[in-house]
Simulated assay, not measured.
Amino acid sequence: MKGNWDDIKGKLKQQYAQLTDEDLTYAEGKGDELVGKLQDKLGKGKAEITKMLNDM
């Protein structure tokens, strides 16, 4: 996911205006933290967030 993270981040910000750069900070090995932040912000489940990220 890291390789094209900038593209994914841009798409997420377009789709979900409430997301900030801080919400979308991705650090190697911290994928679970990112998913947790997105769950809190978007009110979606872990599986839904993971699928959304994988589909982008």
Score class of each variant (00 low, 15 high):
D21E: 12
D21K: 13
E33R: 13
T25W: 05
G45K: 15
L34D: 03
M1E: 12
L19W: 05
D6L: 07
L12Q: 13
E28G: 00
N54M: 01
D23E: 13
Y16N: 08
D7R: 11
N4V: 13
L12R: 14
I49G: 00
I8W: 00
G3V: 12
K13L: 12
Q39H: 07
Y26Q: 06
T25K: 11
T25V: 09
K41Y: 09
D21V: 14
E48Y: 10
D55N: 02
G36F: 14
K9Q: 08
K30W: 00
Q39T: 07
G31Y: 01
K51A: 03
K51V: 06
M52H: 02
D40T: 11
N54R: 05
I49Y: 03
Q14V: 15
V35H: 10
T20H: 10
M52R: 03
Q14N: 15
N54I: 08
K46N: 08
D7E: 04
D21M: 15
I49R: 03
G36E: 15
G43F: 09
E33W: 09
G10Y: 07
E48V: 13
L24R: 08
A27D: 05
G29Y: 00
A47T: 15
L38W: 05
D55K: 10
Y16C: 03
L24Q: 07
M52V: 10
Y16H: 13
K44W: 10
L34R: 06
D55W: 04
I49N: 00
E33G: 10
L38M: 08
K51N: 03
Q14P: 07
D6C: 02
D21P: 12
A17W: 09
K13T: 10
K41A: 09
D32C: 02
K41S: 06
D21Y: 13
K2A: 10
K46P: 06
K37G: 07
M1V: 15
A17R: 15
K13A: 08
K9F: 04
K11V: 15
T50I: 10
G45R: 15
M52T: 08
K37L: 14
L34S: 07
K44G: 03
N4I: 12
E33F: 10
L53K: 03
K37P: 04
Y16I: 14
L12K: 14
D21N: 15
